[in-house]
Design a protein around this nucleic acid. Structure first.
Lengths: 129, 129
DNA sequence: GGTGGTTCAGATGGTTCA
DNA sequence: TGAACCATCTGAACCACC
């Protein structure tokens, strides 16, 4: 604990431990068990609630970056789930245990979903850098 | 996105950063990945949907200005495509990446790059669906 | 102090109509 | 054809609660 990254560290803003695990944008904190940005936080909340049948027109391996996260809601949601995001509908408390519960690997359900991405992990389209 | 000079950088050849890239009319925003006016927005939407075999009676190099854009649909569509316009066949992509994706790295000269990316997107189909 | 939920302004695609 | 309007999504700001 010595290090007191206050100036230089911040100026770098490269490998900041505060990157949204979904799109890579600047994360604002833990949301739904994952470190995400405000955008993904809101997106996940809305999407999960609606339960709309999102489907990726491609193989489901769209790139979900800050600039492209809006392009394919389906893949974005997929990545959210893969990151372990999920709403706590049962827990009475608002936050069961953020840092403690999240660090672990994806839940079973999430793994099943991951399978999809691994399938065509071969960069298919994604021309965008 | 720091600094918002909106003049020096962009004022390369366009007086206003809101010109339709197709006909030069006043653009109303980003439509189908390109800054266009309402006219070209509607035209592109209709034309692409119909997929009619448009052919230019001339050499295919008609001038597409605000006053002449209606003269040759073929060249107009061509210019739309050249500008990087394309429909998102995705299920529900309402917001490709308007102000967030472009304003960032796509300022000034970057604009040209953006168009290039879309343009040379030959082999690489749909950068985003 | 940190996170979930709600609100609100901005932006774009689609539709309508003269 | 294109202006006007509507429907929907996005994300920042704010508030409530633990």
């Amino acid at each position: 604990m010595t290090a007191t990254p206050t100036s230089e560290a911040m100026a770098s803003e490269e490998d900041e431990p505060r990157n949204c695990v979904v799109c890579g944008d600047r994360a604002t904190g833990y949301h739904f068990h994952a470190l995400t940005c405000e955008g993904c936080k809101g997106f996940f909340r809305r999407t999960v609630n609606k339960k709309t049948g999102l489907t990726c027109p491609f193989a489901g391996s769209c790139n979900v970056s800050k600039a492209q996260r809006r392009h394919c809601p389906a893949c974005r949601l997929q990545k959210c789930l893969n990151a372990g995001m999920k709403k706590d509908t049962s827990s009475s408390s608002v936050h069961p245990s953020p840092r403690l519960a999240h660090p672990g690997p994806c839940t079973a359900s999430a793994h099943a979903l991951c399978r999809h991405q691994h399938f065509h992990g071969t960069a298919s389209h994604q021309v965008h850098q």
